[in-house]
Simulated assay, not measured.
Amino acid sequence: MDVKLSQALQQSIFQQMEANFPNEGGGFLLGSRTGDVVSIADVIGVENNFETEEQYHRYAMTPQNWAQMEDTADEQGLSIVGYYHSHPNAPAIPSEYDREHALPNFVYIITSVMAGEAVDMRVWLLQPDRSKFEPVSLSVEP
């Protein structure tokens, strides 16, 4: 599988995640999937709804966020293809918590933000049996 993301959208994610530091931030990936290629057309940040004192290492959105994004995606002729979030002062590798709360068939972009600066972005796909994440290639295009 290959995920295609424009430089502008990558920078948007980086800016959002840096602005949320030292807490986790995140949002929805809107786009399309053709075969093994996921093309990201828009990224929409969503406020972290996890308990305030846990936001430094946890991110959550509400069912209302999901419903609103479904409508937004439909209006744009797109689909929700995944999610993105940050790992403050930690690598861009899924945690056990991420695995337990992830859904198969969606791509997950994780950005490592070290000392307030986005330093790494990786893409992951949860295996159908939910046992683990597998890395996915990312193509950042002009």
Rank of each mutant, 00 (worst) to 15 (best):
Y108D: 09
Q15N: 09
S139R: 14
V81A: 06
E70L: 11
M121V: 15
D98Y: 02
A118S: 09
D71I: 00
A41G: 10
M61I: 15
G26I: 07
E75D: 13
P91S: 10
A19L: 12
G35Q: 04
I40S: 06
E117I: 14
P88V: 07
V3D: 14
M61A: 13
E75H: 13
R122L: 06
Y83E: 06
Y84A: 10
E117Q: 14
H101K: 13
K132T: 14
A41S: 15
L125E: 15
R99T: 14
W124H: 09
V3K: 12
S6V: 09
L78K: 05
V81I: 11
Y56M: 11
P88L: 07
M69Y: 04
V37M: 01
V140M: 06
R33K: 15
Y56N: 12
E117N: 13
I80S: 08
P135R: 14
V140H: 02
A102W: 07
F28V: 07
Q55L: 02
E96P: 08
S137V: 11
M69P: 01
Q11L: 05
E141I: 07
Q76T: 00
L29I: 01
M114G: 03
P135Y: 04
E24Y: 06
H85T: 09
K132E: 15
S95N: 11
A118P: 14
F133N: 01
F133M: 02
M61D: 10
D36M: 05
V136Q: 06
G27H: 05
I109H: 07
F21V: 13
M121E: 12
M114S: 10
A92L: 06
S137R: 13
W124K: 05
A102M: 06
A73R: 00
E47C: 06
M69K: 04
E70M: 08
T34A: 09
H101F: 12
P91R: 10
L29S: 05
V136T: 11
V38K: 03
M17H: 10
I80Q: 08
T62W: 00
H85I: 06
R58S: 13
E18R: 03
E117K: 13
I110S: 01
I80T: 09
E141V: 15
S86L: 05
H87D: 01
I40F: 02
E100Q: 15
A118L: 14
D2E: 14
M17L: 11
Y59V: 01
L5Q: 11
V3C: 14
A118I: 14
I40R: 02
A41Q: 15
Q55H: 08
N105F: 13
I110P: 05
S86E: 07
D36P: 07
A102V: 07
V38R: 04
G26C: 12
M114I: 13
P128D: 14
V38W: 05
P128V: 10
E54R: 11
A60M: 12
M114C: 04
G82E: 08
M61P: 03
Q76P: 01
P142N: 15
P22K: 14
R58T: 11
E70N: 08
K4I: 15
A102P: 04
D71A: 06
H87V: 00
G35S: 03
R130L: 08
N89L: 12
A8Q: 15
D2P: 02
E134P: 05
V46T: 11
S39D: 07
N49T: 04
